[in-house]
Design a protein around this nucleic acid. Structure first.
Lengths: 367, 367
DNA sequence: CAAGATGGCTTAATCGATTAAGTCTTGATC
DNA sequence: GATCAAGACTTAATCGATTAAGCCATCTTG
């Protein structure tokens, strides 16, 4: 039962404080921003008067307009914001970015927008930011185009070669190749792939060679290429490998996809999950099928999210320095905003984290 | 080696586009904001010219200033931003808030600021937002005061009764009491408490009765009260219960704290962790001590983060609707901004989620 | 004591848009 | 053919600050 004030007074502005004191707006402004420009006594009076008038401090938008700085950087993400928080990888990345922006005293604006409706394109246009970190977007995403039109400094993450902007990424192809080679080296010959989204036009289900070839998300593309290189390198038929595309990077989707892959004949002895989240889902699917990991089926993930080390069994995966990636991206953008010269592109190292979800296939010859 | 343009041209503004076309700025503005105000042909010409001039679209800060709307809401959090992303509870809450703001077309600005230095107080002051969601802050936090001074609409989360602002919370005391009663009901008599931070002045270690009584974080206070009510209700001595305060809500801290609690004589048969994150750490500590859960030690958490259902063994805990809490908070703030009447305070229900980390103590009489 | 330095405040231009109200055409209507 | 309405732009005020430059009085210094 909050009481509505009958007379909703206009919020006081700098000028009101100035008039109340008989000084000019410039002086009040200086009281806030450049204390050395006025006597301590007057400054104190200004601050006291401001408080008593209920002046909420210099309006951030007016200040931003005048100074040409928003004091925040924007993060652009392919999916809905609410989803970004469900993805441990995105969360870690954001944490890294936040560390950098926080150190620079900048805010972090999460820009809403699934690339569905026209209205969403307004989001990056309206965002009061000094630059963007653009994370893992499809090159043909209209949201990306809208952000680029702002002509602000940008840093890309996991989008190598997409723009001439600086960015940070890992070598997804090499990572994927390494983990696939790990399985092949253990002797696995029947593999299944649990893939992330292939294109912004989402769908779940088995993906045929055509669809696989049409993958537009840079990360998905790169990892598929890595798997392919290892598989072809081992003399296996790439087109014979079943691929299940998950419309969403979630445990549930991973579980459903893995279930389907486990039903293909002959049953794969190892599953390549393109993310740990999908891998955790696969772990569950194997359990539900009454099989065990790694005795019956080996599972590998990708990303090395924190939970991967705590699953049962702990997940063999490709370690990626997410936090560092975010940190670097943030620092790059901060440096860009400061007008510093910048390195063009940073590629961070990955390494295979062998844990307990992989073993040689039952009664198989060692590779 | 990005090439610096030798002559960094001023960014074109509305006026530049207008002049290039021989119309007024108003017309160009209308081309963007009110297409019905001009002929489709001219609008098209405006848009084309804008593009060819490299006009990045209406400046968000200028628009925001004029319209009196920032188009974003701020989130204020007690800790460092980077930390917020490490806390699954905060992440879920943010996800909920994001859902609401996204639906309203608003951005989400994460305001940096650990309450350390004077400089940090500038963050909430500089944030270009239309309102704040304030999450679980100590009432005496200067950051909170700084945000309040902005006199913007606010919604609190997990801070019942702290301001007269609308907010959302759960009944932490009842939840804590229920989970403690669950343990007592199983027959446990020797308990240990793994507590979250008691005050903004952080420290790790055993907390004596004085320090426990001085807890200022509303959530911590409330949960302690709940434990206390159950314990006292069971006829046990509250002051005899060892409490370990974790300076940070992390698995590592939980592990360290649990280790200490397990070393007290006589060893507790059950540990009350004030969060699932601490509980997961406790699980690890028990494992390291060569004991087993729940045979030797029962562990309960609080929060019911997603991972709690997947730990080994799955954690008995108090389920809290984090996502919903965020969603409600976001919706409340959006409604407030829209000038709608609002309910004052929402208290969301919790319930006990009994899983496999609790059992009667070994060879103990049933309670 | 004149010249210069310093401190303390004001002047006035400016940042880049939005929008209610007004003007001028052109076309329809009786 | 006068009247009105609608359509297409323009005028001009305004949002709330920041900041370089200027002005005046007071203090220092040789």
């Amino acid at each position: 039962m909050a009481v509505k004030r009958p007379f909703e007074a206009r919020r006081p502005s700098l000028k009101d404080v100035a008039e109340a004191l008989g000084v000019t707006a410039a002086t009040v402004s200086n009281a806030y921003n450049r204390p050395d420009q006025l006597s301590p006594a007057l400054r104190e009076r200004v601050l006291v008067t401001a408080r008593s008038l209920g002046y909420p401090g210099p309006n951030p938008m007016a200040r931003g307009l005048r100074r040409g700085r928003a004091g925040a950087i924007g993060v652009l993400y392919a999916d809905r914001l609410s989803y970004a928080f469900k993805d441990p990888v995105a969360v870690e990345l954001l944490s890294g970015i936040a560390t950098a922006t926080e150190a620079a005293g900048l805010g972090l604006l999460l820009v809403p927008g699934s690339p569905r409706t026209e209205r969403d394109l307004e989001a990056p246009r309206r965002a009061a930011v000094d630059g963007f970190v653009i994370y893992s977007m499809s090159p043909d995403d209209p949201l990306l185009a809208a952000a680029l039109e702002r002509r602000l400094p940008i840093v890309t993450v996991d989008m190598p070669g997409l723009t001439d902007a600086p960015g940070v990424a890992i070598d997804d192809t090499a990572g994927a190749r390494t983990v696939a080679e790990h399985l092949l080296g253990l002797g696995h010959r029947r593999l299944g792939i649990l893939s992330l989204e292939l294109t912004p036009a989402v769908r779940s289900g088995p993906a045929d060679a055509n669809r696989v070839a049409s993958a537009s998300y840079p990360v998905t593309r790169a990892r598929l290429r890595g798997y392919q290189a290892a598989i072809v390198g081992a003399g296996l038929d790439w087109d014979g490998i079943p691929v299940y595309e998950c419309a969403e990077n979630s445990i549930e989707e991973g579980c459903i996809g893995a279930e389907q892959l486990l039903n293909t004949e002959p049953r794969p002895t190892a599953l390549l999950a393109m993310s740990d989240t999908l891998g955790i889902g696969a772990l569950e699917a194997v359990r539900r099928a009454g099989l065990s990991v790694p005795a019956d089926v080996s599972i590998v993930g990708f990303d090395d999210i924190p939970e991967a080390a705590r699953t049962d069994p702990p997940l063999t995966t490709v370690h990626e320095p997410h936090l560092n990636k975010g940190l670097k991206a943030g620092e790059l953008l901060v440096a860009l905003l400061a007008g510093e010269a910048h390195p063009d592109f940073v590629t961070l190292p990955t390494h295979l984290a062998v844990r307990s979800s992989t073993a040689p296939p039952r009664a198989a010859p060692r590779g």
